[in-house]
């Protein structure tokens, strides 16, 4: 067992921490500040606070320090010591047993749920640390949160790779790349007959009109076929990688890299589009699992 695992076992043994009370009771001024900052115009919060504020009530504030029995703080210190000095949050799941009423006093307790690693990630080797927060009013649990962070040792800078091959863009295809830059997957649609088409062209093969338009596709589809590329090197890619031909829900096919471990890809895999900005002028579509 590694030192990290031993320490994790010890911190898990602490169980739930002492409850730490929030600074102020649930109150309308903070709610109104929060709604204003987030641009939320909902009328739902005259008597109760927005559920997504659960954590706000027990935030430590400007000069806060972690309690000694705070399991996340303790575990992060262990990992810092072991050389995993960087941190990124990966998941946050909040469950609201009920909404909080104004005037209620909220207290927070936390426990360590798991420490998993060391894992090789794109950021570097690290450990996934999962904690559970439980908010109480009196002895009643009112909300919970599973919170996961990756505590990692930053990977050494990768050797410079050749920039990826840039597409040729002309007036027939510009709409597509303008779309990716805006986070939209645009598919050519004939303004005359409505035929969808990808790859695009200036004249509709169905009606021969030269009125190409486009729609924004859902970005959802299934893997129709795919390749796991091992050799030779491809500019801008780290080997091996997956390229997938995806049949969109709209019925046309579109190829892009599939950001998924090769072993987990199969024909029929449900995917959705994502976008990766290369620079100010080029954003590539990328498939992700859904």
């Amino acid at each position: 067992m590694t030192d990290v695992e031993a320490a994790a076992r010890q911190v898990m043994g602490w169980g739930e921490s002492a409850r730490r009370p929030g600074r102020d009771p649930v109150n309308l001024p903070m709610v109104r500040n929060w709604l204003e900052a987030l641009g939320d115009a909902s009328s739902a919060y005259a008597e109760e606070a927005p559920p997504a504020m659960a954590q706000v009530w027990t935030m430590g504030g400007l000069h806060h320090t972690r309690a000694d029995d705070d399991p996340l703080g303790a575990m992060l210190a262990v990992l810092d010591e072991a050389g995993y000095t960087s941190i990124v949050a990966t998941d946050c799941e909040q469950t609201y047993h009920r909404y909080l009423r104004y005037g209620e006093e909220v207290a927070l307790a936390a426990r360590l749920e798991s420490v998993v690693g060391p894992k090789r990630t794109a950021l570097g080797e690290g450990w996934f640390v999962t904690t559970r927060n439980i908010w109480y009013v009196g002895d009643e649990p009112v909300a919970e949160m599973m919170f996961r962070v990756l505590k990692f040792a930053p990977a050494p800078a990768e050797p410079p790779v050749e920039p990826l091959i840039r597409p040729v863009v002309n007036r027939d295809t510009a709409y597509f790349w303008e779309g990716t830059a805006r986070g939209e997957l645009r598919i050519q649609r004939c303004e005359a007959c409505g035929e969808l088409r990808h790859p695009p062209g200036p004249m509709c093969p169905s009606c021969n009109e030269t009125k190409p338009g486009w729609l924004v596709a859902s970005g959802l589809g299934e893997v129709y076929s795919y390749v796991v590329h091992h050799h030779p090197p491809v500019p801008g890619r780290t080997l091996p990688f997956v390229v997938a031909l995806v049949e969109l829900d709209e019925g046309v096919r579109l190829m892009a890299e599939l950001d998924a471990p090769p072993d987990e890809v199969h024909i029929g895999l449900p995917v959705r589009i994502a976008f990766a900005a290369v620079d100010d002028e080029l954003t590539m579509p990328v498939w992700r699992r859904r």
Partner: peptide
């Protein structure tokens, strides 16, 4: 031809074998 290939090469499909 370059435009055709632009739907494939930049996506990572850059060799005849692939």
């Amino acid at each position: 031809g370059g435009l055709d290939n632009s739907w494939h090469y930049p996506m990572g499909l850059g060799t005849p074998a692939a």
